[in-house]
Amino acid sequence: MTAIRRLVVGISGASGVILGVRLLDILRGIGVESHLVMSRSAEVTLAHETDLKVQEVRARAAVQYPVTDIGAAISSGSFRTLGMIVAPCSIRTMSEIATGVTSSLLTRAADVTLKERRPLVLMVRETPLHLGHLRTMTQLAEMGAILYPPVPAFYAKPRGIDDLVDHALGRALDLFGLEAGVVRRWGETDQ
């Protein structure tokens, strides 16, 4: 049996849509098949934060699904993947996943990832956090999700936003055992 090199990518409506866009490029570059689902809010955020069109982002994925397609391959546990990453992850998306009351393919795919005991990485983009957010995060951690806010690592001496984005994504991909070559690692020689 060959190893599956397939990752589900969710892009929700939180600020930081560039995280999901860049992730698609990185995955293509390392030969990982990306399966993309974007929320409607992500499409709005994309227009506010970039000059990209929705179709341009979808074209970066190996496979893309409409957010309403609840019968898509990624909605089934029998569809094998390495797991799922939601980059960025809004508080609404995080909350839906935590309750299991999913209203879209994005949150359904995340729910399936958890039930199949595959890694689910949520790059939550919101601050400050109130107690309800923290309790939801605790609930998700107890369920097996990995909460990964894209906090900058300044020891890597980033030269700009691209370096910050790449470092955060490279570290998130480490959680799937994927080396992207975009991280300046502490204690290791420069790349």
Rank of each mutant, 00 (worst) to 15 (best):
G31D: 09
G71C: 11
G71S: 14
L105E: 04
P128I: 09
A62N: 14
M84F: 02
A62P: 12
V32K: 04
Y148K: 00
T81G: 04
A62G: 14
G71K: 11
G31F: 06
Q139D: 11
V101W: 13
S104R: 06
T102D: 06
S78Y: 07
T102N: 09
S90Q: 10
L147H: 04
R118W: 03
R28H: 10
I26P: 05
Q55A: 11
V67M: 12
E49F: 12
P66E: 12
T136D: 03
P150Q: 02
D111F: 00
I70M: 15
Q139G: 07
L105I: 07
P152N: 11
P88E: 03
V121S: 00
L140K: 00
L140C: 03
M38E: 08
E116N: 04
P88L: 03
G132L: 15
P66G: 04
A72Q: 11
T113H: 01
S76I: 08
A72H: 07
A109S: 15
R92A: 15
F154V: 15
L140E: 01
T136M: 12
R118S: 02
T68L: 09
L134F: 12
F154E: 07
R92K: 15
E33W: 14
H130G: 13
D163A: 11
H133E: 12
G132W: 14
R92G: 15
R118E: 01
D51N: 15
P119S: 05
V121A: 00
L46K: 05
L106R: 01
D111W: 02
E142K: 09
S76G: 14
K53P: 02
S76P: 11
A87C: 06
D25R: 13
L52R: 08
E43R: 12
T81E: 05
A156L: 10
A59D: 14
V151M: 14
G77F: 06
I74Y: 03
V112A: 02
H35E: 11
V151G: 10
E96K: 07
D69F: 08
A72P: 09
H48W: 15
H130S: 09
V37E: 04
S103Q: 13
V151K: 12
G83H: 03
I74D: 06
P128A: 08
A47F: 10
L114C: 00
